[in-house]
Measured scan of single mutants.
Amino acid sequence: DYFTVDMEKGAKGFGFSIRGGREYKMDLYVLRLAEDGPAIRNGRMRVGDQIIEINGESTRDMTHARAIELIKSGGRRVRLLLKR
């Protein structure tokens, strides 16, 4: 199942961390959800969800650093296409 999650940044960021990336020879996944962060309050994202797109850009062969950069580059908002 594919689904989109739109979030607005909180005081401590978006409230999730990721693992994976090209340099680890793996796809990008949601690693952790911060307690009471925007990701957990949104209610749609879960640990283990695969991140397919960040702000419309495919994560295929994307490095971990580039993924972080893209998440931050959207300013106060981020849109993720996830797969569960």
Rank of each mutant, 00 (worst) to 15 (best):
D1C: 02
D1E: 07
D1G: 05
D1A: 04
Y2R: 08
Y2H: 03
F3Y: 04
F3K: 08
F3N: 06
F3S: 08
F3R: 11
T4Y: 06
T4S: 03
T4R: 07
T4E: 05
T4W: 03
V5E: 03
V5A: 12
V5F: 02
D6C: 15
D6W: 03
D6T: 08
D6A: 06
D6F: 05
M7F: 03
M7W: 05
M7K: 03
M7Y: 04
M7V: 11
E8D: 09
E8F: 03
E8C: 15
E8L: 05
E8I: 15
K9R: 06
K9V: 07
K9D: 12
K9G: 10
G10W: 05
G10C: 06
G10Q: 09
G10V: 04
G10S: 11
G10H: 05
A11G: 10
A11P: 10
A11V: 07
K12F: 06
K12R: 14
K12V: 08
K12Y: 12
K12G: 12
K12Q: 12
K12P: 06
G13R: 03
G13L: 02
G13M: 02
F14N: 03
F14D: 02
F14M: 06
F14Y: 14
F14C: 06
G15W: 01
G15Q: 03
G15A: 02
G15K: 01
F16H: 02
F16E: 00
F16T: 00
F16I: 05
F16M: 07
F16Q: 00
S17R: 13
S17Q: 10
I18Y: 02
I18S: 01
I18V: 12
I18T: 04
I18E: 01
I18H: 01
R19M: 05
R19D: 15
R19H: 14
R19E: 15
R19S: 15
G20T: 09
G20W: 01
G20S: 03
G20E: 04
G20R: 01
G21S: 03
G21I: 02
R22V: 15
R22Q: 15
R22M: 06
R22W: 04
R22D: 08
R22E: 15
R22P: 04
R22C: 04
R22F: 08
R22T: 15
E23S: 04
E23F: 02
E23N: 06
E23I: 00
E23K: 04
Y24F: 07
Y24E: 15
Y24S: 13
K25M: 07
K25P: 05
K25E: 13
K25F: 09
M26Y: 04
M26A: 14
M26C: 11
M26P: 04
M26F: 03
M26W: 03
M26N: 06
M26I: 07
D27H: 05
D27M: 08
D27Y: 05
D27W: 04
D27E: 11
L28Q: 02
L28Y: 02
L28F: 06
L28T: 03
L28A: 01
L28P: 04
L28V: 06
L28G: 00
L28N: 00
L28S: 01
Y29D: 13
Y29R: 12
Y29S: 12
Y29L: 10
V30S: 00
V30E: 00
V30R: 00
V30G: 00
V30W: 00
V30P: 00
V30Y: 02
L31V: 12
L31C: 15
L31K: 10
L31S: 14
L31H: 14
R32K: 14
L33Y: 03
L33E: 02
L33S: 03
L33C: 05
A34M: 13
A34T: 09
A34P: 06
A34F: 11
A34K: 10
E35V: 07
E35I: 10
E35A: 13
E35L: 12
E35R: 09
E35F: 08
E35Y: 12
D36C: 07
D36A: 06
D36W: 05
D36I: 05
D36E: 15
G37H: 12
G37M: 11
G37E: 11
G37N: 10
G37D: 08
G37Y: 05
P38L: 07
P38V: 13
P38A: 13
P38R: 06
P38S: 13
P38W: 05
P38N: 10
A39R: 04
A39P: 07
A39I: 06
A39Q: 05
A39W: 05
A39F: 06
A39M: 06
I40H: 14
I40F: 08
I40L: 11
I40E: 13
R41L: 09
R41V: 11
R41S: 11
R41N: 13
R41F: 10
R41I: 12
N42W: 05
N42A: 13
N42C: 08
N42Y: 09
N42T: 13
G43C: 09
G43A: 12
G43H: 06
R44V: 14
R44P: 05
R44S: 14
R44N: 14
R44G: 12
R44M: 15
R44I: 11
R44A: 12
M45A: 04
M45F: 03
M45T: 03
M45G: 02
M45W: 01
M45D: 01
M45E: 02
R46F: 12
R46G: 11
R46K: 15
R46P: 01
R46I: 10
R46D: 14
V47F: 04
V47P: 09
V47C: 08
V47N: 15
G48C: 04
G48K: 04
G48W: 04
G48N: 11
G48Y: 04
G48I: 01
G48H: 06
D49I: 00
D49Y: 01
D49V: 01
D49M: 03
Q50L: 12
Q50R: 13
I51A: 01
I51Y: 00
I52Y: 10
I52M: 15
I52D: 05
I52V: 12
I52Q: 08
I52T: 13
I52K: 10
E53M: 07
E53N: 09
I54R: 00
I54A: 01
I54N: 00
I54V: 09
I54Y: 00
I54E: 00
N55S: 03
N55W: 04
N55Q: 07
N55V: 01
N55T: 01
N55L: 02
G56N: 12
G56Y: 06
G56A: 05
E57K: 13
E57F: 15
E57T: 13
E57W: 10
E57S: 10
E57L: 10
E57M: 09
E57V: 11
S58L: 10
S58C: 13
S58P: 10
S58N: 08
S58D: 08
S58M: 07
T59K: 01
T59W: 00
R60G: 12
D61T: 08
D61N: 08
D61W: 05
D61S: 10
M62P: 00
M62F: 09
M62Q: 05
M62K: 05
M62T: 06
M62A: 07
M62N: 02
T63H: 05
T63K: 11
T63E: 10
T63W: 04
H64N: 14
H64I: 07
H64F: 11
H64E: 13
H64V: 06
H64R: 12
H64Q: 09
H64W: 09
A65H: 09
A65M: 08
A65I: 08
A65W: 07
R66M: 07
R66P: 00
R66E: 13
R66Q: 06
R66F: 05
R66S: 08
A67I: 03
A67W: 02
A67L: 02
A67Q: 00
I68L: 15
I68D: 11
I68M: 11
I68R: 13
I68F: 04
E69A: 10
E69Q: 11
E69V: 07
L70P: 00
L70Q: 15
L70H: 13
L70E: 15
I71G: 01
I71D: 00
I71Y: 01
K72Q: 12
S73W: 10
S73V: 12
S73Q: 11
S73M: 12
S73T: 12
G74H: 14
G74Q: 08
G74F: 03
G74I: 04
G74W: 03
G74N: 08
G75F: 03
G75S: 09
G75I: 05
G75L: 04
R76W: 07
R76I: 09
R76S: 13
R76H: 13
R76C: 09
R77G: 11
R77M: 12
V78L: 11
V78K: 01
V78W: 00
V78S: 04
V78A: 08
R79F: 06
R79V: 10
L80W: 00
L81K: 15
L81E: 15
L81C: 12
L81H: 08
L82N: 02
L82C: 10
L82M: 10
L82P: 00
L82Q: 00
L82G: 02
K83T: 12
K83F: 15
K83P: 01
R84D: 05
R84M: 04
R84T: 14
R84K: 10
R84E: 11
R84G: 14
